[in-house]
Amino acid sequence: MRHELIIAPFLQDHWILRPGSSAGLKIPAHRYLELRDAAAHDTMPAWLPDVVRRRWGIDVGDRRPRDILLVRGPSPYGHGRASYEVNNGCNWACPHCVYGDKVHEGLAWEPRERLLHLLRDAGIVWIELGGGECTIDTHFPETYALAYDLGMMVEIQTNGSTLHRPAMLDLLTSRRPYRVTLSVYGATAETFDGFTQRRGAFDKFMRGLVAAHEAGLPLSLSVIITRENAHETDAMRALAHRYASRVREYAHMSPTFAGGAEPLAQQAPEYLQNRTPFTGCDAGHTSLNVNPFGMASVCKVSRDHPIPLLKEGLAGLARLGALADRALQRQNACASCALQKKCTTCMPLVKLYRRAESPLDRYCQHA
């Protein structure tokens, strides 16, 4: 029987989490210890059924704790979130993609299995599986299932093209993700297929979106506004709000992670809005990114000096914090800039824009 609740330390706190729900319940440390003992001795704490009923509307009063609770142990490594690029290959060819040449390659199952256990032991509770298009990876079903079974709250980033398949729906409804995020590239087949450079892409997207919605999966939709689809912006917004309560918009295209300028040509200038100042982030300290070969980096953008997790093990993660601090330090002309406190772009992203020889107005207020 699969767990109904995850009891997990998360950074300095302790939480009760429910797979398939983004809502959690923070509990004091002594309650965490009580639940850990309850699972070990199969005795239900008197307070738990009422708390769970009020938070999620489920009844666990007559259930055995060992059947419904998965208790995560504490980790000394201090990480709580990770993004894992399962495979950078993709079945679409969107010109704004930050991955550039999307080569279909990644880890075989045995090293991938070891990698997921390492992430669990590092303290990762929230994990994002992406790519590329992660769902077309040969080992995606096992990867997703193991991350779930290890007690991680799983999000998948997908183009939706496989979500209508019965096997995929069975996987995601029997082991529910806390979020499924899809991108909207157009409101008509002509625009959507043209942008993805794949005939039939819109039909597959809509079939997947409708199937996931009907299955009650927690959907999040990203409306991607570019020069090729900006004329359908209102229609894309309407489509997104029809199927998801969580909708975000993105118009600022970034260079590829290798510093390629190709995505910048997709900018729709009239939709570029002022962004909020960058005031720092937890990247490298409590969160990290892992590429398809098990190389850990500060984040998706800051990939310098990656750490080979499968070779060094968790001890290698001790270097990430210092790497992050160095990566975020303002460099060259940015170091003496009077507008630093109002800057909206982190230094690793600035370096990508510079490498791509981007126009200054795409990332710098001095433009």
Rank of each mutant, 00 (worst) to 15 (best):
R319T: 10
T276R: 11
I307A: 04
H14P: 01
V223W: 00
H241M: 02
Y84N: 03
P292D: 05
R275V: 04
F140A: 04
V184I: 08
S358K: 00
Y77C: 06
Q365Y: 14
Q12C: 11
G61C: 14
N91F: 05
R179L: 11
R207T: 03
M168R: 01
D203C: 03
R207Q: 13
F257M: 13
P255N: 06
G130V: 08
D234N: 02
W126E: 13
M295A: 05
G106V: 01
Y250H: 12
S21L: 12
N91Y: 03
H366W: 13
E155G: 09
Y353F: 15
H96I: 14
E249A: 10
C337E: 06
L172S: 00
A261N: 01
P255I: 05
Q157R: 14
R54I: 06
K204M: 08
A322C: 10
P9N: 05
L35R: 01
V247H: 07
L33P: 03
R18D: 07
I7V: 14
P269D: 08
E113Y: 12
R18H: 15
A244P: 01
V98H: 11
G61R: 15
E142N: 07
L339W: 12
I58E: 02
G280S: 02
A261Q: 01
R54Y: 09
F257T: 10
G313C: 01
G316H: 03
Y84P: 06
T279W: 02
T344S: 11
V98L: 08
L217E: 05
G321M: 06
P74T: 14
R31H: 14
R55W: 06
C299S: 07
